[in-house]
C-alpha cells in the first residue's frame, strides 16, 4: 500500500494578533510561528498507520519555499519514507487550482494506492486541493474522512456529515481521501525519527521542471483577479462588560437570570 500525502506549512494564528500589509493583500507573517496544517498532521498520521499495518511506502509532498521543507521533515520523522518539495517560485498568488496543478504534476508519476490530503487548510480554508487533485488524476475520492478500513483493492471510509451523522462509502483503489481532524491521535516526533530523516534526500522540483507555464499558475493562472484583506469590523457584536471581575460577574449573573429564567 503506497500512499502519497500532500502537506503544507501554515502560520499559527489562534493565539496571534494578525496584521495586514499596507496593500491589504497579505497578512504579515514575520512574527508568526509556522507549523504543519492541523488537518495535514492527521493525514500524515493516518498514512503512517496504514503503512504500518499494510506495508508500503509513504511519500509526502509540499509546495512551498525552502522553509517549508520543515513540514516535510516533520512528516518524514513521523514515519513517511520519501519527500518531494515543489518550489514556490512561480506559484505565488496561485489559486487552489494552480496549487493542485503543481501537486498533480509532481505526484502523477509516483505509484500510489492512496492519496491523502487534509480536508482544508487552516489559513485560506479553500478545501479544494485534495479533490481537485483526485479529478485531475481521474480517481475516485471521498472528502472529510473520519475512518478508514482497507479491503482487497478497495477502501471503505466514514465521511463526516452534518448533525452528528456519518456516511459509509467504499471505492476501488487507487483513491484520494481528504482527512478530517479527530480521525486519529497524531504521534509526537521522536529523535529516532529525526535521525532517520538524515538519510533521506528531499527531492526538489519546480514549476519549470514540471512543465507548467506562467499562464497556468501564479496570478496569471489564477481565476482570482485580486484579493483585499481586512480585519472583521470591531465595535459591532458583543457588548463587552467592563469593571472589576466581580462587577463583571455580577452583571453576567443578572443577564443569565433575566434571559435564562434562572432563579
Amino acid at each position: 500500500m503506497n500512499i502519497v500525502v500532500c502537506v503544507k506549512q501554515v502560520p499559527e494564528v489562534t493565539d496571534a494578533e494578525l496584521e495586514i500589509n499596507k496593500e491589504g493583500a497579505e497578512i504579515l507573517k514575520e512574527d508568526l510561528e509556522f507549523d504543519i496544517n492541523e488537518w495535514d498532521n492527521y493525514a500524515v498520521e493516518e498514512a503512517v498507520r496504514i503503512k504500518e499495518a499494510h506495508h508500503g511506502k509513504v511519500t509526502v509532498v509540499t509546495l512551498g519555499d525552502e522553509d517549508c521543507a520543515d513540514v516535510l521533515r516533520t512528516a518524514l520523522a513521523m514515519g513517511a519514507d520519501e519527500a518531494i518539495r515543489i518550489d514556490e517560485q512561480g506559484f505565488e498568488f496561485s489559486d487552489a487550482a494552480g496549487i493542485a496543478q503543481g501537486l498533480y504534476r509532481a505526484v502523477r508519476d509516483v505509484p500510489f494506492d492512496l492519496l491523502l490530503t487534509g480536508a482544508q487548510g487552516s489559513d485560506d480554508g479553500w478545501a479544494q486541493v485534495g479533490l481537485t487533485l483526485a479529478e485531475l488524476l481521474g480517481i475516485p475520492y471521498a472528502s472529510l474522512v473520519v475512518g478508514v478500513e482497507i479491503g482487497e483493492g478497495t477502501i471503505t471510509v466514514h465521511r463526516e456529515l452534518e448533525s452528528n451523522t456519518q456516511e459509509k462509502v467504499d471505492m476501488p483503489l487507487p483513491a484520494a481521501l481528504t482527512i478530517q481532524t479527530g480521525i486519529n491521535n497524531p504521534r509526537y516526533v521522536s529523535i529516532m525519527g529525526i535521525q532517520k530523516v538524515r538519510r533521506i534526500e528531499i527531492k526538489e522540483t519546480d514549476s519549470e521542471e514540471l512543465g507548467l507555464s506562467e499562464a497556468e499558475i501564479g496570478s496569471q493562472g489564477s481565476r482570482v483577479d485580486s484579493q483585499k484583506l481586512s480585519l472583521p469590523p470591531v465595535g459591532e457584536g458583543a457588548d463587552i462588560l467592563t469593571g472589576s471581575l466581580d462587577e463583571i460577574c455580577e452583571k453576567t449573573a443578572q443577564i443569565i437570570r433575566d434571559k435564562g429564567g434562572v432563579m
Binding site: L18, Q227, K228, L229, P232
Partner: peptide, 11 residues
C-alpha cells in the same frame, strides 16, 4: 479566512 480572523474580499 484564518479561522474567521480575517475577511478576504475577492474580485
Amino acid at each position: 479566512i484564518y479561522g474567521g480572523k480575517i475577511n478576504a474580499q475577492l474580485a
